Amino acid sequence: MTHKRSRVQRVRWVKARNHVRELNRQQAAHRIRDLRKRVEHLFAEAKEWHGLRRARGRGLWCVQSQILLTAITQNLKRMAHVFHRHNPAGEAVMPSPLPETLHRFRLPSISPSFS
């Protein structure tokens, strides 16, 4: 009786395995794998290069702050890479933070007067 039960169980495992293989062949599964790979690379970079292997502080607030600062750092690095890649000559590619109308106003230079 145990031999028959193990054979039935083996057949169930084979059917389940074949079903999963069919699901993995679909286009949606391919897109999900690509997204997962991208996210895993970001976490690996954070651990290897930005100190997310260990928490620097204690408590939820400190750890969340560390993770937020690490994410900001990674995003700034990617932005710098994109701006440099689109303009390798080093010209200004980022728009000015001030509107054009404010550029004509100049602040008076403050120089120390020794009288």
Rank of each mutant, 00 (worst) to 15 (best):
P97W: 07
M79G: 05
H84L: 10
H84F: 15
L76C: 15
H86Y: 05
F83L: 15
L76P: 07
P97I: 08
M94V: 11
E100K: 01
M79C: 04
M94H: 07
M94D: 07
R78P: 03
N75Q: 13
T101E: 00
M94A: 10
L76I: 12
A92H: 08
S96E: 14
N87I: 09
R78D: 12
L98Q: 06
P99C: 00
P95S: 04
R85W: 05
Q74S: 04
R78I: 10
A89V: 01
P97R: 04
A92T: 09
E91L: 11
L98T: 05
K77A: 05
T101I: 01
T101M: 02
Q74D: 02
K77S: 02
S96H: 13
L76A: 12
F83G: 10
H86Q: 10
L76Q: 13
P95W: 00
V93I: 12
H81W: 10
G90A: 04
A71Y: 08
V93R: 03
M79Y: 09
A89N: 02
V82E: 14
G90D: 03
E100C: 01
N87S: 14
G90H: 06
P88I: 13
T101N: 00
R78H: 14
A89D: 06
T101S: 03
T73V: 02
A71S: 13
V93L: 07
P95R: 02
A80L: 13
P99T: 01
R78N: 14
S96Y: 09
H86S: 06
G90S: 07
H86V: 02
H84A: 13
P99Y: 00
M94Y: 08
L76D: 09
S96F: 09
V82C: 15
T73E: 06
R85E: 08
I72P: 00
A80R: 09
A80Q: 12
M79V: 09
H81N: 05
E91C: 10
A80I: 04
A71V: 11
A80D: 08
M79I: 11
P95I: 01
M79R: 11
P99G: 00
A89W: 03
M79K: 12
M79L: 13
I72R: 09
L98A: 08
R78C: 08
G90P: 02
H86W: 03
Q74W: 04
L76S: 10
H81F: 08
A80H: 09
M79F: 08
L98M: 12
